[in-house]
Design a protein around this nucleic acid. Structure first.
Lengths: 100, 100
DNA sequence: AAGATATATCGACTTTTCCCGATATACCAA
DNA sequence: TTGGTATATCGGGAAAAGTCGATATATCTT
């Protein structure tokens, strides 16, 4: 995994917000329909509405976060649910502790 | 301090390398003349030579790192010595632990 | 004061990132 | 199979970052 790619993924206000929102899905996405979203994550449409950017932009941002291993995606029917990857974020801490 | 600016500063291979080199100045900059460089840092010219990019580029990169509080600068005569700001890097760990 | 050296800043060009709207794809429901 | 909905991908225009050479500034030496 390229460290630069991780930091690039974090170099954007909206992407940092998304990562933050996903820490507390229940509070930040009260309109989410799927009752299991604490485990599975939040769908793209909810994140898009909250972020206030276009659907295509948010979809791309989420895949940038995914490529950096900061979130994981689960497809269920027509929805894709995204949640934080705590392992990936832990690895980032290690990078900063050692490589940096 | 803007988190995005910190991550942007880290989103570049050369700037990450510089930060790394400055962890071990004695090993990475054996040609440094100033014998006190462990405390004061390494001068721009040494960093430029090692990085292999132009003088202007490295000068700008160092000021980007400085604006992000990742290094500090000390002017001594005609030289500017840069060293890691361990406090700034510690703060980055906090950001990742809390804000992220 | 004049020349030499180290660093910073400026102007320009190229590449990348930020976003969007439009379109494609995948899935669901009737 | 025909719509309808959710997400992904594509193409593009504007803004930012990467990088350079040239020039400016600061300092030192003589």
């Amino acid at each position: 995994m390229d460290q630069v790619e991780i930091f690039k993924a974090l170099s954007n206000k909206t992407r940092l917000q998304i990562l933050n929102w996903l820490k507390e899905p229940a509070e930040n996405f009260p309109e989410q329909l799927n009752p299991d979203f604490e485990n599975i994550g939040v769908c793209v449409g909810q994140i898009q509405m909250k972020a206030g950017l276009s659907q295509s932009t948010i979809s791309e941002y989420l895949s940038i976060l995914q490529r950096a291993n900061l979130v994981t995606a689960t497809r269920v029917g027509q929805w894709t649910y995204y949640k934080r990857s705590e392992e990936g974020i832990k690895m980032l801490n290690q990078i900063i502790g050692t490589a940096l």
